[in-house]
């Protein structure tokens, strides 16, 4: 499975290292394809974040209505998609669903899987936030004649969402990094493009370019998470 290591045999160790990892010719040949992969990864990430958070919030709001059978379904959904490894879900959607005439594209399968997983985690986090708002807040709002939904919207959620920002940031980042799993079903995102370029050329430079692309994409995320955490630590 390892790619052919394509290095001139006469090279010194350092030259061989530079040739294999920092090869400008190879980088020049593949950077465009990797940039296209970058766009795919970004687009996939953005759609997953939006879908996952919206669905997760909707489920948490639905759960706050305290309809027993509905809540049971929501809990089962959240448990299943938090317990299953995302790669397993992607593989079932992409490789197994065609058997029942429900084939979907690699992008759709990856997007749907990650969105379901994020929705499950986001629901749990939002729900924990809603529970953390003191009961007196509900009672005060209801005593002024607000409905359950109005109370949720104007009084409870604004407080709950604040508490959920740090855990949610970490979770969103972890799941967005899962876009790399799309490479397993041949979605042309960064990892897929750069690893196939790397085996095609017998050179590790495309992998390194791909790795840099991921750093560009996710380091700001990591820093944002740190900033959020210190900000919220002060407020406590």
């Amino acid at each position: 499975m390892n790619p052919v290591v394509n290095v001139p045999p006469t090279m010194s160790t350092l030259d061989r290292f530079l040739f294999s990892f920092f090869n400008p010719d190879i980088a020049g040949r593949y950077w465009k394809a990797i940039a296209e992969g970058f766009v795919t990864t970004t687009w996939l990430g953005v759609t997953v974040i939006i879908t996952g958070l919206v669905v997760g919030l909707a489920l948490a709001v639905a759960r706050a209505q305290h309809v027993k059978p509905l809540n049971f379904c929501i809990i089962v959904f959240a448990d299943v998609f938090r317990a299953l490894p995302p790669l397993v879900i992607i593989i079932i959607l992409f490789f197994a669903f065609p058997y029942i005439e429900m084939a979907m594209s690699a992008f759709t399968a990856t997007w749907l899987s990650l969105s379901l997983v994020l929705a499950a985690f986001a629901e749990e986090i939002f729900w924990a936030g809603i529970l953390a708002v003191p009961k007196g807040q509900w009672e005060a709002a209801r005593s002024t004649g607000m409905s359950r939904l109005e109370t949720l919207q104007h009084v409870v959620l604004p407080q709950a969402v604040r508490m959920t920002v740090p855990p949610l940031t970490n979770r969103v980042m972890a799941i967005t990094k899962g876009t790399a799993l799309g490479s397993v079903v041949a979605l042309h995102e960064i990892l897929n493009v750069s690893s196939s370029a790397s085996s095609e050329s017998g050179n590790a430079t495309p992998l390194l370019v791909g790795a840099c692309a991921y750093l560009i994409l996710f380091i700001p995320f990591v820093w944002f998470g740190r900033w959020i955490e210190t900000r919220f630590a002060w407020k406590r």
């Binding site: 390892n2 790399a180 790397s198 590790a204 992998l207 991921y214 750093l215 380091i219 990591v222």
Partner: peptide, 24 residues
């Protein structure tokens, strides 16, 4: 910590698995 949290774990795995042979 930031470096290895920023990398998707699959990217790390592929990099080690396919990249290390280049380092012999």
């Amino acid at each position: 910590v930031d470096f290895f949290r920023a990398f998707p774990p699959l990217v790390l795995l592929i990099f080690i698995y396919f990249g290390f042979p280049f380092l012999q």
